[in-house]
Design a protein around this nucleic acid. Structure first.
Lengths: 106, 106
DNA sequence: AAAATAGGTGACTAAATAGTCACATGTCAA
DNA sequence: TTGACATGTGACTATTTAGTCACCTATTTT
């Protein structure tokens, strides 16, 4: 499960697709293809499938179109449960350092 | 750069190696091998190389041993610069919801 | 109904990655 | 200084993943 999310995020093209949805949610496959002239429609479709399988993208059919929506929940989950373990000790240490520096300045 | 970190984190074995270093920093290759009976020494070494190339692990030679240390900075960076973008709107929304619920209860 | 539009499937090739092995180097301890 | 120990290198195979294509179905639009 977590595995799928990490793998999905490991590809630059897929991160760019998430960025595109973050900028404008609910885009169709065609619209997303327009942003990636370097790839064929099939390439984009495959990446979207991976993102959907990882739960990072949800879709809704609308007639002959398919709308794609960003779902940040899996990212929030790995951030909270896995990354925080490594990042927090460091970031809180940095925050502490920053606080010390500010105190020193006053 | 970010690419290397994401790719490095995409493998379960490598995440397990980071966990091992998180639990006990400064382990040698042999010690880390002992935790992964399913892999050969060479397999473990390759994964450590990937982690080191991504900046997630730093090493110090100590005689005929090589000590491996976890470097959480790259993880903190992707958490702050990339994941926060997606996770924060959600987590802050959740925090807001939680606050609302608590207010309602009182 | 015919043509145009939007998306989907299965098979296929090419590239990247995981994993292994024979062999090589450097280090320590007796 | 010999033998055991700890790690490194280059080549190799197998698996996975990215990317493409010919062909297909479903939905408008005219």
């Amino acid at each position: 499960m977590t595995q799928d999310v990490f793998k999905a995020l490991a590809d630059e093209t897929r991160r760019a697709l998430l960025d595109a949805l973050f900028a404008s949610d609910g885009q169709t496959l065609s619209q997303l293809c327009a942003r990636h002239p370097d790839l064929t429609r099939f390439g984009v479709m495959k990446h979207l499938d991976v993102l959907e399988a990882a739960g990072l993208v949800t879709t809704v059919r609308d007639g002959r179109s398919k709308l794609h929506f960003l779902n940040p929940v899996p990212i929030a989950e790995i951030a909270n449960r896995w990354i925080a373990k490594y990042a927090e000790p460091f970031t809180t240490a940095m925050v502490g350092l920053k606080a010390d520096l500010e105190k020193e300045q006053s």
